[in-house]
Design a protein around this nucleic acid. Structure first.
Lengths: 140, 140
DNA sequence: CCGGATCCGTCTTGATACTG
DNA sequence: CAGTATCAAGACGGATCCGG
C-alpha cells in the first residue's frame, strides 16, 4: 500500500518549481538538464548498457551485445559512442590480434548508475502495479 | 568534486546482483522491470510529460503540448494513452462545447514522479560535467 | 474552437552482410 | 572481434482534417 502523502506532493512541487520556475519553456537550451543530458542517457538501451556495466565491471563489445539482448550492432556502437562522449564510460582498445576492446564505467558513470539503480528498484517493486493497470486498461 | 567511493560501488554491485543475478538474460519477460516497465515511462517525452504534470497539477491537451515544447500531436496523444494505460495519469473528458480534456497524475504517477525528480536533480547538478565531457570529446 | 486521427515526407532503428 | 555498410521497417514532426 504505497501511497503518496500530500506532504510528498508538496515537497515535489517545490523542487519542480525550483527546476522549472525560472525556465523559458521556449528556450530549449535552458531546459537542458532534462532534455539534453537525459536524452543521451535515458533511452532504454543506454539504461541497460549502464546497468550491465555496473553489474559486470568490464565488458567487451560482443559480451555487451549478448547481455543487452536484442540490441543491434549499429545501435550498440552508436550508444557506446554517445555514452563515451558524455563521459559515462571509457573505451580501451588493446591492439592485439584479434583486437580487444573493453568498456567500463567512469566514476561519473557510476554516479549515474546509482540513480539508475534507484529507478530500477522502483520499477522492480512497482512492476506488478503497472502490469495490472495495463491489463485492466486493455481489458476495459 | 563528487567522487564515487569504493563503498558505494560495492553497494551498487550488491543491488545489481539482486536484480540481475537470477535472471535468464534470454527471457525478456523476466527482465521485465527495466525493459518492460521503463520502456513506457523513460523515453524523453514521457519523462517531460510526467514532470510537467507534476509541476502543473492539471493540464489540458494543448497546454501540455505547449509545455512539452516540440512534441507533435501524434506522439503526445500516443504517449498519453500509454501513460494512462500503465496507470501514471488519469484522463478526464468534460463533454462541453468545445470539449475539454484534462490530464493529471495518479498517485502511482506521483510515486514515479518522485524518482524522476531525483534523476532530474542529478542531471541538473551534473549537466556542466556532461557538457564539458562532450565538448572535450568532440574537440579531440 | 478543442482534442485528436490521418496522411505524408523525413529521420531513426533494426537485421544482416561484410570488412580491417 | 569490433565495428561499418546497406537496405528495409518503423517512429517522428508537421500539416491538415473532422467530430463534438
Amino acid at each position: 500500500m504505497e501511497t503518496i502523502t500530500e506532504n510528498q506532493k508538496v515537497r515535489a512541487a517545490k523542487k519542480l518549481k525550483k527546476m522549472f520556475g525560472h525556465v523559458d519553456l521556449r528556450d530549449t537550451s535552458l531546459i537542458c538538464p532534462i532534455r539534453d543530458v537525459m536524452a543521451v542517457a535515458s533511452d532504454k538501451w543506454s539504461i541497460l548498457i549502464v546497468l550491465y556495466l555496473g553489474y559486470f565491471p568490464v565488458l567487451r563489445f560482443n559480451e555487451l551485445k549478448k547481455k543487452v539482448y536484442g540490441i543491434s550492432n549499429k545501435v550498440l556502437s552508436e550508444r557506446l559512442k554517445h555514452l563515451e562522449g558524455d563521459g559515462y564510460l571509457k573505451r580501451t582498445m588493446y591492439p592485439e590480434v584479434p583486437v580487444r576492446v573493453e568498456y567500463k564505467l567512469t566514476d561519473f558513470g557510476h554516479s549515474y548508475l546509482q540513480k539508475l539503480i534507484e529507478l530500477t528498484e522502483w520499477a522492480e517493486t512497482h512492476k506488478n502495479c503497472v502490469i495490472s493497470n495495463r491489463t485492466s486498461y486493455h481489458g476495459s
